[in-house]
């Protein structure tokens, strides 16, 4: 019996040492893999909204091992066709990655084709349609007290409103709520705004039957589609804790600006894939996410969206 105790004692001591060692049993080192010398692909980013100045980012990709994140395009022209006709020929300025033309504005339902020409060679093209503004209506606002998941009893603002889904088709949206605060600082009135994180428990934001939120859940920042909505009107319900809204002694008024973006499918899938890629960023046990692109011959997105806005005063 004494021998068995001795052996067990020996193993316990060894185990402590081994598990101490185990916490250091990994190592990292640079590895030499012949990565394809990628880079030089034109990348574009432009979210076109009706009646807004045309703004576009245009640059070129670099090798993944580069310490830079992009390189400039050279001698680059943007040719835009509107509704199947040549509309405008723009020169993208050198040594920059973002350009804006204040006088260049488009309307809903415009079909736009972008042709990117570098050194007189067409390197990429993209096409998009600016979607209609879809309004929401029948807004109801109530204030309720709820016990949240953390056991806190909180005062919540609950919003409900209807949106049209006339074609029963796949329309793509993003619901963004901004909290705008006006503060009086002496004689100055300061406006500030920030996007509010609201509860996305409405079934339009997630598909039932796959409750994995305890393991992890990606917040798609209010993106949704009408894929599975079978009625021509859908009532969205959301809730946001009142204390998350900016409040201070100097606050004069607090508004909620409710924005319903109607997105083209490319906008929708681009934003989604960026969010997923960001969620997995730096975790090597997941495969890299392919970020959606509608740029033929290039990367990024050239897409249209429109926005319906309404304001709610919640100061009182």
């Amino acid at each position: 019996m004494q021998i068995i105790f001795k052996i067990v004692n020996f193993f316990v001591k060894i185990q402590i040492i081994v598990f101490f060692v185990c916490s250091f049993i990994s190592c990292e080192k640079p590895v030499d893999i012949d990565l394809k010398d990628e880079g030089g692909t034109v990348s574009v980013l432009s979210f076109i909204q009706p009646d807004s100045a045309f703004k576009i980012s245009c640059s070129k990709s670099v090798s993944i091992l580069s310490s830079n994140n992009y390189q400039f395009v050279n001698n680059c022209k943007l040719i835009i066709y509107k509704n199947n006709r040549l509309y405008i020929n723009l020169r993208f300025p050198d040594d920059t990655i973002m350009a804006m033309w204040n006088d260049l504005r488009f309307q809903t339902n415009d079909t736009l084709v972008l042709q990117i020409v570098e050194n007189n060679i067409t390197v990429a093209t993209a096409i998009t349609i600016i979607p209609d503004v879809i309004p929401f209506f029948n807004i109801d606002t109530t204030t309720v007290f709820r016990t949240d998941d953390l056991g806190n009893k909180t005062e919540n603002i609950e919003l409900a409103f209807d949106i049209n889904n006339p074609d029963y088709g796949s329309e793509f949206f993003q619901l963004v709520i901004e909290n705008v605060v006006t503060e009086i600082n002496g004689e100055d009135t300061i406006f500030s705004s920030e996007i509010v994180d609201y509860s996305k428990s409405d079934l339009i934001f997630y598909k039932s039957g796959q409750g994995v939120s305890s393991l992890g859940e990606i917040d798609f920042k209010g993106l949704f589609s009408t894929n599975d909505i079978l009625s021509n009107v859908y009532r969205i319900k959301i809730s946001l804790p009142k204390k998350s809204l900016a409040v201070s002694e100097n606050v004069n008024t607090t508004f909620l600006i409710v924005k319903l973006y109607h997105l083209s499918d490319d906008c929708f899938f681009y934003i989604r894939s960026r969010i997923i890629a960001n969620y997995y960023d730096g975790v090597p046990i997941f495969d890299p996410i392919k970020i959606h692109s509608n740029v033929v011959g290039g990367l990024g997105v050239f897409c249209g969206s429109s926005c319906f806005t309404d304001t709610l005063n919640i100061s009182n």
Binding site: I33, L35, T41, L45, S59, S61, S63, I64, M98, G300
Partner: peptide, 9 residues
């Protein structure tokens, strides 16, 4: 493996 990166504002 990702083999290129590009500007994403």
């Amino acid at each position: 493996l990702a083999d290129e990166k590009y500007f994403a504002p």
